[in-house]
Design a protein around this nucleic acid. Structure first.
Lengths: 197, 197
DNA sequence: TTATATATTTAACAGTGTTAATATAATGAA
DNA sequence: TTCATTATATTAACACTGTTAAATATATAA
């Protein structure tokens, strides 16, 4: 019967919600099993009845954040009209999401996950995410001959790599020193890579 | 008298060498105070007579690795003649160094260091390092009108951000799956950003 | 040699993730 | 309802982590 599974899923969600709150707030560094369990209203060992280990729990959050980010980017860029401008808008919204939640950036890109072989699809989801968000726009640019398919393939990667690099420096190394400077640099970089303006 | 200081520096170096060995081998994850001390031939508490804390010790390693990387890049690119080709060669050597020692990449870019206000110069050293390695070549390109000063400033950043992004994906997320693919991508990206070939 | 100063180590504390044993709650049958 | 069984939750413990205070060993000076 499904009642057991519904209840089980419900308790799992308490742990997941607690973990997501901590990740969005204090970040990965202040995440601990006892911390999560306290917020979820259970003892720390109870967590292991519902998750293999804490990594398992954390990776369930990844999927949720992923969906949240996708929705954020879509609503943020809804009014942009197709073309390189929209690709820029998508990239900027993507950046904004991680600036809002640096803990999620940490989780997505900085945390060691190589030992989680079974979670490989989730990892793939992360690094192909920006591509997925902007693939329609790239196709549009190719079809309308704004850019060649070969160039598009390279530019798509450049945008992604450069953005992650900038986020890494800004979030982890405070460079540039202010958000204003950072976002201007994002703008400059996107303009250069996408050859706009 | 300087004898005391020489001896003190000598013992410090034992800890530093031990830490460097672990970082180059097993990496940051298997670095611990007891681990370091054992390899240095001292008890774990002795470390605190020579370093404020373990972060202090680790940051002394950063300076050493920095010098080692600089030398590696210089010998690797000695025969390249000035111009965009040499900038490419420098970037590729820079990448090779971190591929050889992923633990050092972790240490330089992934480790949280925001709470170390006094070490700010060291942090600045890290993120301005590639710029420093290639600044002469950029000046050359500007003087010989290969590129404008304005473009050079942007391209310099793009190269750096994109390379760090690619290293992050490859080292931390195993994307692309093979070194061959990874290095081909480095080549492709550099060619696009630097407008060569 | 003895007294003092210095250097090193051991013991302890407050954390971490995880597991085994125990206690509690829910469920079934008599 | 009462008892036995099962499922779930909690406490205790283990092996780690970085760090500090007290105890010990070593070197220096009188």
């Amino acid at each position: 019967m499904g009642n057991k599974e519904i209840q089980e899923q419900r308790i799992k969600s308490y742990f997941i919600e607690a973990t997501k709150e901590i990740l969005k707030g204090e970040g990965l560094k202040s995440l601990s099993v006892r911390n999560i369990a306290e917020r979820a209203g259970y003892s720390y060992a109870t967590l292991y009845n519902y998750f293999k280990d804490v990594k398992d729990l954390i990776f369930e959050c990844v999927v949720d954040f992923h969906e949240e980010c996708e929705e954020f980017v879509k609503t943020e860029t809804k009014k942009s009209q197709s073309g390189p401008g929209k690709i820029k808008a998508i990239a900027k919204a993507y950046v904004k999401y991680f600036i809002q939640y640096p803990g999620i950036f940490e989780l997505f890109f900085l945390e060691k996950t190589t030992e989680l072989a079974n979670k490989q699809p989730t990892i793939k989801l992360i690094y192909s995410f920006l591509d997925k968000l902007s693939e329609d726009e790239w196709e549009y640019c190719i079809k309308t001959k704004i850019v060649s398919a070969a160039d598009a393939s390279i530019m798509k990667d450049t945008v992604h790599y450069a953005i992650i690099g900038m986020l890494l420096f800004y979030i982890n190394r405070r460079e540039p020193g202010t958000y204003k400077e950072f976002f201007e640099k994002i703008e400059t970089q996107l303009n250069y890579i996408l050859k706009v303006k």
